[in-house]
């Protein structure tokens, strides 16, 4: 059984059809990449999978580890092990990053029937993960994402992923806007978490990230449909010749 199985997914936003029949299968242990031009629906797909309710699913089915993902609330999907690193992480003034991270982790632990962790137990664990991402401790006391630079926000997303230890992580343009050092740090953070029972869906515009996080499959999303799928070499080809050349050869995952 695949970890994620998307069948003929149609999604409307504000009355416009954005996803027009997406099919995709992702097995545990795999990394898949989704590439595609601006506005093709990559973030829409990511947000629907994270269960954003303002997106209307008009047709199709999504199974997450065999369960009906589309019936889940966002918090249930998260607790079941789905994580989305946002393209545009949200600022939450007045809520400290440390408190937020611990609340999130404890919500997930509670759902799984584990004991909640207090701050004393949690902090050492958190500090360790921050070190891996080269994040200063001052980020713990600052409000979530507030006045973080673009790169800091992206690293904060990866930190959340590291804390929540999801089974499926969807990274929506986590590489965009990062300089090469930050890109390596983020890629290292992801690679450190690769494991046989965890999968990644990496949305990106740039082939460069895929030098560091090498995908098993690359899918090209154009105008709400996956028009082509292939191995890592497809990303290189896209980088050179653009999306126009792949537009027609429809292929499933």
């Amino acid at each position: 059984m695949s970890l994620l199985e998307i069948k003929n997914l149609h999604v409307q936003v504000g009355g416009n059809e954005i996803l027009k029949g997406v099919n995709l299968r992702l097995d545990a242990g795999e990394v898949h990449s989704i590439m595609g031009p601006n506005g093709s629906g990559k973030s829409t797909l990511a947000q629907v999978l994270a269960r954003r309710e303002s997106y209307d699913v008009t047709e199709g089915e999504v199974l997450f580890d065999g369960k009906d993902l589309l019936a889940m609330k966002p918090e249930d999907a998260a607790c079941e092990g789905l994580f989305l690193a946002f393209q545009y992480p949200v600022e939450i003034p007045g809520v400290s990053n440390a408190y937020f991270l611990r609340s999130a982790m404890n919500a997930v632990r509670k759902y799984r029937g584990q004991d909640e962790m207090d701050a004393m137990d949690f902090l050492p664990k958190l500090r360790e993960k921050m070190k891996l991402l080269d994040m200063d401790e001052k980020f713990l006391n600052r409000s979530v994402n507030e006045a973080f630079s673009g790169g800091e926000k992206k690293r904060n997303e990866i930190l959340q992923m590291a804390v929540l230890e999801p089974r499926l992580a969807i990274l929506d343009e986590t590489d965009s806007g990062l300089d090469i050092d930050a890109l390596k740090i983020v890629a290292n953070g992801v690679n450190a978490m690769r494991s046989p029972d965890r999968a990644f869906l990496v949305v990106t515009h740039y082939q460069r990230l895929l030098n560091y996080i090498v995908p098993d499959r690359v899918h090209v999303l154009v105008d709400g449909r996956i028009v082509r799928s292939g191995g890592p070499e497809l990303a290189l080809q896209l980088e050179e010749s653009g999306y126009a050349t792949v537009g027609t050869a429809a292929g499933a995952a």
Binding site: A50, R51, R52, E53, S54, K73, P74, E75, A77, A78, C79, F83, L84, F86, P89, V90, E91, I92, P93, G94, V95, F100, S103, A104, M105, A107, V108, Y111, S143, Q160, L164
Partner: peptide
Amino acid sequence: EEDALFYLRSRGIDEASARRLLLMA
């Protein structure tokens, strides 16, 4: 803010707690 609410919920925090967290903030 819907965005903030969704962000918190996407991290596993249930809706009532997320609302409470935002109000407290």
